[in-house]
Simulated assay, not measured.
Amino acid sequence: MELYYGEMESPVGELTIVSDSKKAVRIDYGSFAEIEDKLRHWSERYFDDPEFIQEPEKVDLAASELREYFQGERQDFTFDFAFYGTPFQQKVWQALYNKIPYGDTKTYKDIAQTINNPKAVRAVGGAVNKNPFSIVVPCHRVVGADGKLVGYGGGLDKKEFLLTLESE
C-alpha cells in the first residue's frame, strides 16, 4: 500500500501530512524523518506492506486549509480524511471533531458523556492521546476538569498557542 506524505512549516513547527491518495490518514507534529518510526509502526497495523512516498501534491488541500487556519481565515476543515483506530478511539475522535466548536473547550468528562460512556474518562484520555489528526481533530481543545491545560502530544506550548489563536 502506497502512502503519500508532505511536510509543511507552521507557527507550531513542522507538520507531516499523510494520505492514501484519496484521503488524509494522519497529521503529525514533526518532519517525516523525525517521526518515521512512529508512522511505520502505526501504518503496519492498518495497511498491507505500507510504503511511504514523498509527494506533497497529494496533501496540498490539507496543507492549504491548515495554512488558512493558522492565518485565522478558517475555522472548519473540508478536506477528506479517514480515521484508523479502534472503534472506541474513532468514536472519541468523531466527538472531538463534531462536538467542540472552534474557540471552545471541553473536559475529558464532557467527551465521555458525549459518547454516552460517562465512566470512560481515562479511556477518553487515552484515545485523545492517540489522535491521528493534530489540529484538525481538536484534541487541543480538551482541558482538565479544573479548566487547566493538561497533556498534549505536541506539548503544552503548542496547545496554548492553538487555543490563543482560536480565542482571537
Rank of each mutant, 00 (worst) to 15 (best):
M1H: 09
L3H: 13
L3I: 12
Y5W: 07
Y5Q: 07
G6T: 05
G6C: 03
E9V: 05
P11N: 04
V12I: 15
V12H: 10
V12L: 08
V18F: 02
D20V: 05
S21T: 10
S21Q: 11
S21L: 02
K23I: 02
K23F: 00
D28T: 14
G30T: 07
S31M: 06
I35S: 07
I35G: 04
D37M: 14
L39A: 06
R45P: 00
R45G: 08
Y46P: 01
F47M: 04
D49T: 09
D49Q: 10
D49F: 10
P50L: 07
E51S: 14
E51F: 05
P56W: 01
E57G: 06
E57C: 10
K58P: 00
K58R: 14
A62N: 01
A62W: 00
A63V: 09
S64W: 01
S64P: 00
S64D: 14
S64N: 09
E65G: 10
R67I: 05
R67F: 04
R67L: 03
R67W: 01
Q71T: 06
E73G: 03
F77W: 06
D80T: 04
F81Q: 08
F81T: 08
P87V: 02
P87K: 08
F88L: 10
F88R: 13
Q89A: 09
Q89D: 09
Q90A: 06
K91P: 01
V92M: 07
Q94Y: 09
A95K: 06
A95G: 02
L96I: 05
L96W: 08
L96G: 05
N98Q: 14
P101A: 15
Y102D: 11
T105E: 11
T105D: 10
T107Y: 02
Y108C: 00
K109Y: 10
D110V: 01
I111N: 04
A112G: 01
Q113H: 09
T114G: 04
N117L: 11
N117Q: 14
P118H: 13
A120I: 02
A123H: 12
G126N: 15
A127R: 11
V128T: 13
V128I: 14
V128C: 07
V128L: 04
N129M: 10
N129Q: 15
K130M: 14
K130L: 14
N131L: 04
P132S: 12
F133K: 02
I135H: 05
I135K: 03
I135C: 05
I135D: 00
I135V: 15
V136N: 07
V137E: 11
V137R: 04
C139E: 15
H140A: 08
H140V: 01
R141P: 00
V142S: 05
V142F: 03
G144V: 00
A145C: 00
A145G: 01
G147E: 03
L149K: 13
L149G: 05
Y152A: 08
G153N: 15
G153F: 06
G155P: 01
L156C: 12
L156P: 02
K158T: 11
L162W: 06
L163R: 15
T164H: 14
E166D: 07
S167W: 02
S167D: 12
